[in-house]
Design a protein around this nucleic acid. Structure first.
Length: 506
DNA sequence: TACACGTTGCATTC
DNA sequence: GAATGCAACGTGTA
């Protein structure tokens, strides 16, 4: 047991050092600081019955992204004289033991609006309060406090973007710079008998890692998040002219958006810091786009959905959800599986679903296409089923935003113009007229690279003609074998897709 | 009760 | 590439 005053910083989302008020408060005036992350079986336990490798709720890509984020968090804590303490088990049980064993006086964790954390946090708060432990749980995952907006609107969340923006106004912190510089942290005290581990690997958690080709090209962590954000905003013209609906969902080498969503989801990047950085860019250009289509507008959408999700009981289901249209969706598992496993027969749809499996990320409009197709567009399968597939496989899967978008796309809430349907054929043709996107992800069609294949065909024919001429038509089977496909051609294909991944990461 | 409006539809026409 | 018809929804506001 440590003798001085000890604080515990409980990381869940908010896996960052910059703009982390809970961490700062935990550090202030404490002799010892215990930064803790609990590996929660609820999210992390392998599920052998799931349709792809991973836990019941998370596919392997997102689990890997989380572990990478934790390794980076540990490194960043070490730079400040601290380190990350990883524990395993049901979070409240693990925490109660730590609070007792380390004689914690202050417990700090970021406020979380999700029902799972609301229930968990209430349990933890109740215990800590009874034990005389101070609790600090600030709102820092979103730009605004969802509870404030709901209160301003008379107790109910606004149901349209415009009314949300009107209610929200300017963020309270907008005029003062966000804290991004922590210079040191109190040391970690004695951990006693609590079973602390390093950040586990995929294998440590009981998973068999997937082929590199099936892994997401996006790496987790605060360092990568900040690098990626700075890279995006360095192009001032791009930021100023950003118009979400005008992006190309089939763009492979350079995605049409920032791909910061997974970093915002885990809190590797502070949405408030990102907001300030965008504002800074906008101040220094002559003209720029505005919400809802601008880059800043995207952060407001995120807050809008967080607010509605927080203020709506049973937000993640159709029944007992007062903002959700009641619709007689089909419960057809064959149709669901055909969609999920990229067997719809529509290359545009199937390619997007393969991108989801492999990358755990697709462009917003690509998500629209496959979600519309599964629900109101073609298959009429329940949006909750599609939601579950996205929730598992997306690296940026976020409870509030994922559910909100499925409500939107299925015309169950927010959006109701059900005669506007994304065509699984013409929409793809518009952006991907040459089928580059489709061929990249659909293995059957990807086998043939026309330029390469035709060149090779011509080469073999040339060689065969030469041989026929030389041997006067008396060509044996042995002779023909020497003319076949060269193994280097296969390697070239592999290297091509590797190079693409490298480009995305750089 | 009426009216304006809605981040991203499609096909056709000019 | 912009404009139009298609058919027509709910939210928010007056």
């Amino acid at each position: 047991m440590a003798s001085g005053s000890s604080s515990l910083m409980w990381f869940r989302k908010g896996l960052r050092i910059h703009d982390n008020p809970a961490l700062e408060y935990a550090a202030r005036g404490s002799d010892y600081l215990y930064p803790v992350f609990v590996i929660d079986p609820h999210y992390m336990e392998p599920d052998p019955n799931a349709f792809s490798s991973g836990s019941r709720r998370a596919g392997l890509n997102r689990i890997r992204f989380l572990l990478e984020s934790l390794v980076d968090l540990d490194l960043n804590l070490q730079k400040l004289g601290s380190r990350l303490l990883v524990l395993n088990g049901e979070p409240s049980e693990v925490l109660f033991r730590c609070l007792k064993e380390w004689n914690i006086k202050k417990l700090c964790f970021e406020f979380d609006t999700e029902p799972y954390y609301q229930a968990l946090d209430n349990k933890v708060k109740k215990y800590a309060t009874a034990a005389g432990i101070e609790i600090f749980s600030p709102v820092s995952h979103t730009l605004f406090n969802p509870a404030d907006i709901i209160q301003k609107n008379g107790g109910r969340p606004p149901l349209s973007y415009q009314s949300f923006v009107k209610l929200a106004g300017e963020p309270s912190w907008a005029s003062s710079p966000i804290s991004t510089e922590l210079t040191s942290l109190p040391p970690v005290g004695s951990v006693g008998s609590c079973p602390i581990s390093e950040v586990p690997t995929i294998e440590n958690l009981g998973y068999e890692d997937t082929e590199e080709d099936d892994r997401t090209p996006f790496k987790g962590g605060e360092s990568e998040a900040l690098r990626r954000m700075r890279e995006s905003i360095a192009n001032k013209e791009w930021v100023a002219n950003f118009e979400k609906p005008k992006g190309d969902p089939s763009s492979l080498v350079k995605p049409a958006t920032t791909v910061l969503s997974p970093y915002l989801k885990f809190g590797c990047l502070s949405s408030r810091y990102f907001y300030q950085c965008i504002q800074e860019v906008q101040r220094n250009v002559k003209r720029h786009t505005f919400p809802p289509v601008s880059l800043l507008g995207q952060l407001l959408w995120r807050d809008f959905f967080y607010t509605v999700a927080f203020g709506t009981p049973n937000f993640d289901q159709m029944k007992e959800n007062r903002i959700c249209k009641q619709i007689p969706w089909k419960n057809d598992d064959d149709l669901l599986r055909a969609w999920r496993d990229a067997r719809t027969g529509f290359p545009w749809i199937d390619a997007i679903m393969i991108q989801l499996q492999k990358w755990g990320w697709m462009h917003h409009l690509a998500r629209h296409c496959v979600a519309c197709f599964l629900t109101r567009g073609d298959l009429f399968v329940h949006w909750e089923k599609g939601r579950d597939v996205f929730e598992r496989l997306l690296i940026d899967s976020d409870w509030s935003i994922n559910n909100a978008n499925w409500l939107w796309l299925s015309c169950s809430s927010f959006f109701y113009q059900y005669n506007r349907i994304y065509s699984p054929i013409s929409f793809g043709k518009k952006y991907d007229p040459n089928g580059n996107f489709i061929r990249h992800f659909l293995p059957i069609l990807k086998v043939v690279d026309h330029d390469l294949a035709s060149k090779e065909c011509k080469q073999i024919l040339y060689e065969a003609y030469q041989l026929n001429k030389r041997l006067n038509g008396k060509v044996s089977e042995e002779d023909l074998k020497s003319l076949g496909r060269k193994p280097e051609e296969d390697k070239k294909q592999e290297q091509k897709s590797k190079r693409l991944k490298q480009t995305l990461l750089s």
